[in-house]
Design a protein around this nucleic acid. Structure first.
Lengths: 261, 261
DNA sequence: CGTTCGATTGAGGAAGATCAATTAATGTGG
DNA sequence: CCACATTAATTGATCTTCCTCAATCGAACG
């Protein structure tokens, strides 16, 4: 179909970092994808009539152990996915934005494996999994959309792991902000301003850092003018130049391993 | 369907750690699941006639950027999933055992997002994604099996992230061995002996540690008789008591955060 | 207006990385 | 089959990063 050199720089590997450099191609891809999902979402609404639910910050969409019936699509708002262990460890394992699906981990089990908690007012659509399956005959695209959403989630999770495993604290935070802005951009929103609807502790938890480390990293980023805080409240972050943020990650990496390799 | 207290200790959250404690229920679940997959796998072979391929250690099954056509099922052997970034970082983001599916990350893209490299002789079955989709009318169970495999992968990835984010080095290595043994157990193999077909550097990469830290952790585990090395070669690990390993993880955790909570 | 919660910043300490030396296993060519 | 080269693993010493603990500050809320 499409033979590319199988190298790291292949366009088929749009790592978060590369994405902002290959701006044009990337944006076109995003546009295309958004259009596709917009169509499919409309179809989905018509066909399956999802149960819509308004949520506010703190509302629980589902909890680990709840019986699995439905997948959810986040129509607006922000949701965190939290995993708990019996020994009391708690881990934010994912953040969901508009258009993201929730609850995939329930398919292979009796119930969901994590809690999904809204971090902002928003709307989620509940879609019965069995209804989705049985719609395949009429609308095969619904199922391929599902697959693509699951596939994307797997890719994202791997990037999280990579970030946590390979980046020092500052770069991890910078990369986090970059990813977030990128996510907004992919949804047609402005990428130069983020409202972090989570505490430093939650960010730290997600990134495998303490809240102090997150705070220090943010301060450093502000000092180096990679970001700035919007007046009143330190949860509103301005990012004048996304590419500069990506470069910051690279520099933090270069400092550690001597510029090359 | 099934109303459980939505607490951490819900049976629907079989974290790797809990699993060895809830031995009986867990094993039954595994048996059932293996039986189910065995049936479905047979059906899959009959219906889709997957292309079978023998691989040897080092063989590449697919590479990041390769055009996506097929999903793969690993019939035997061991495969690592490796992600590369343009800046030269390399990360082992997954290990695949018998029965695992490979290549989900390709569904939502033009090509695969990672390399899949065999670490041992084995056999992989290539299944054309379009063929799989179009089989739904005749054999819906094939597609639900696909979903379950993807769902399980998402759950596993989250556990990896959790391990990396919340466990200290020693516990991370112990947990890694525990998970591995558990994986073998779930496939009906003995859980008291593991042949690590990877170097310390690869293990470290997967766990976000240096090879030295992995080596030290293994030495410590051996010193405390949680594991022992089989004569000739330090890649053969005996695990006399899986539960003891899980306890080791707990102790390492308790030491850090004062026994309770 | 005080209380509470979150964020910032500093000082000290600990876990793990880095650097370096040694040993063990594996492979190669004579 | 053995000497040699090569790669992997171990172990120790030192150094860095990040965590922990603590104090202060700011915002939000009742």
């Amino acid at each position: 179909m499409f033979a590319l050199p199988q190298t790291v720089s292949s366009p088929a590997i749009p790592s978060a970092l590369r994405a902002s450099r290959t701006g044009l191609a990337e944006n076109l891809a995003c546009q295309a994808q958004r259009a596709a999902t917009a169509d499919t979402l409309q179809l989905l609404v018509q066909t399956l009539q999802p149960q819509k639910r308004l949520v506010r910050a703190g509302d629980v969409i589902y909890r680990a152990g709840d019986a699995f019936d439905c997948l959810y699509i986040l129509n607006s708002g922000l949701v965190k996915i939290v995993k708990l262990t019996s020994d009391g460890r708690e881990q934010v394992v994912g953040l969901k934005f508009r258009g993201d699906w929730l609850g995939f981990d329930g398919i292979a089990r009796v119930g969901y494996g994590c809690d999904a908690v809204a971090m902002d007012t928003g709307e989620v659509w509940a879609i019965r999994y069995d209804a989705l399956l049985s719609s395949y005959g009429r609308h095969p695209s619904l199922l391929t959309t599902l697959h693509e959403a699951m596939s994307r989630e797997i890719s994202r999770d791997r990037e999280s792991l990579m970030s946590v495993c390979t980046l020092p604290a500052d770069a991890r935070v910078a990369n986090f902000l970059h990813d977030w802005a990128q996510s907004l951009g992919a949804r047609g929103l402005r990428t130069d301003q983020i409202t972090l609807r989570m505490t430093r502790a939650e960010i730290g938890n997600y990134l495998g850092l303490t809240l102090e480390s997150v705070s220090r990293a943010l301060s450093k980023l502000a000092r180096e003018e990679m970001i700035s805080f919007v007046e009143k409240g330190r949860r509103e972050v301005r990012i004048p130049d996304l590419d500069a943020l990506a470069d910051f990650v690279q520099r933090a990496l270069g400092a550690e391993r001597g510029v090359l390799q």
